[in-house]
Design a protein around this nucleic acid. Structure first.
Lengths: 210, 210
DNA sequence: CCATTAAATGACCGAAGGGTCAGTTATGGA
DNA sequence: TCCATAACTGACCCTTCGGTCATTTAATGG
């Protein structure tokens, strides 16, 4: 039995990232309470005690992991949208389609669900997620609406409520997938497309058909 | 010390209901894992062991409690809506206003959040909630849309996706309240009213202003 | 009024899991 | 090459909490 391979390596710089990845996946799968430190350690390829070299407590680890998923490239998308000269009638459907694509891959929704689940026990986690993700998205949509109202494209009305009107159906659809699975769940792309038409044209068939 | 008052009473018929109430409030507050049987028993004015006279296990108690909030008078509301002869343009806003009122009191949303939180660990709880609540609501709205389409009031399109378009914003608004609190949260009645207008008339200002 | 029953209790058990620590071993520098 | 350091481990501790059981006591009815 040649055992020249060392039993473990010292990798001070890489460990924290690997541990955070492992923690994130376990937390997302099980929720906070049901996530066991032993399993996190196992997935990170490390002993449970090693976790405590990098993080104070389970709660600390949870916060750190949750922070890693915050708003990767949200601000740049905001800039692109704001810079675009396209009319609202083109921009909004594209925005919804993009949102559907993001929600469809499931990762974001899984995390959102975790935040929803733990928001009572970790209020500042909810605060962070809200400030860094939810309010960002709402702000983007709201500004878009305001601009379109100024340009005379969109009716008068509270622009923030309009943002809920636009995003709500997709949020509901994404949550449906995450919570109830695929059975009976709406196709998110189809939902985005039809809702975009609905939001633009309205549900009622007006005498003057488009 | 006159202790003529007995230390406890035998109240076989009332206990289960009181225990379920207590369980419901604790579960809603803390989530499944963080809810302690001791606290449930305490709130029910009973010892922990007494819980086991009426329920097999914590999980059993959880299911029973969750079942108590299921669709109290949902079917009768469905009947009333279905019976109404009013045009869709009047019915839908009333429906949204009613939904806003239900969501605003917070109780339903709190439980919904608990279901979202625990759906991974208790898949059949999610199933029950979906079948008994979510699908009921969606079915009501969907049938309403279909009828309106048949009457030539509403555009062609997938009626179930239309149901998401109609209810999604309110669901999102209700969740916002439950998860993030009141700060920045939309007023649900205002949201219902404006979204009803939006859904009926459309976001875009058509050349022929209403 | 007492005997019987079963509702209710308090003290206990055992498993699970977060957290700790003395000791082991990889590694970089002298 | 070897020493000092600190990254890492395995075994352990201890609290919490779901669940059980022998015992107590409120009610019922003969």
């Amino acid at each position: 039995m040649a055992d020249d391979a060392p039993r473990w390596r010292r990798r001070k710089t890489d460990r924290p990232g690997e541990i955070l990845d492992a923690a994130l996946s376990v937390f997302a799968e099980k929720g906070y309470a049901a996530a066991k430190l032993t399993e996190i350690a196992h997935r990170a390829g490390v002993s449970k005690a090693a976790l405590y070299l990098y993080f104070e407590t389970k709660e600390d680890l949870f916060r750190a992991a949750a922070r890693t998923l915050v708003a990767p490239n949200l601000t740049e998308m905001a800039g692109a949208l704001e810079a675009s000269e396209a009319p609202f009638a083109d921009l909004a459907p594209a925005l919804l389609a993009g949102a559907a694509a993001v929600l469809a891959d499931g990762r974001t929704v899984t995390i959102a669900r975790m935040v929803i689940a733990e928001s009572r026990n970790f209020p500042d986690l909810a605060r962070i997620w809200r400030e860094d993700v939810v309010e960002q998205v709402l702000a983007i949509v709201t500004r878009l609406v305001v601009r379109a109202q100024d340009a005379g494209e969109v009716r008068a009305g509270d622009p923030r409520l309009y943002a809920f009107s636009l995003m709500g159906p997709l949020v509901m659809g994404g949550l449906f997938h995450a919570v109830f699975g695929e059975e009976g769940a709406p196709d998110l792309e189809a939902l985005a497309a039809q809702h975009a038409r609905t939001a633009m044209n309205g549900l009622l068939i007006t005498p003057q058909e488009s």
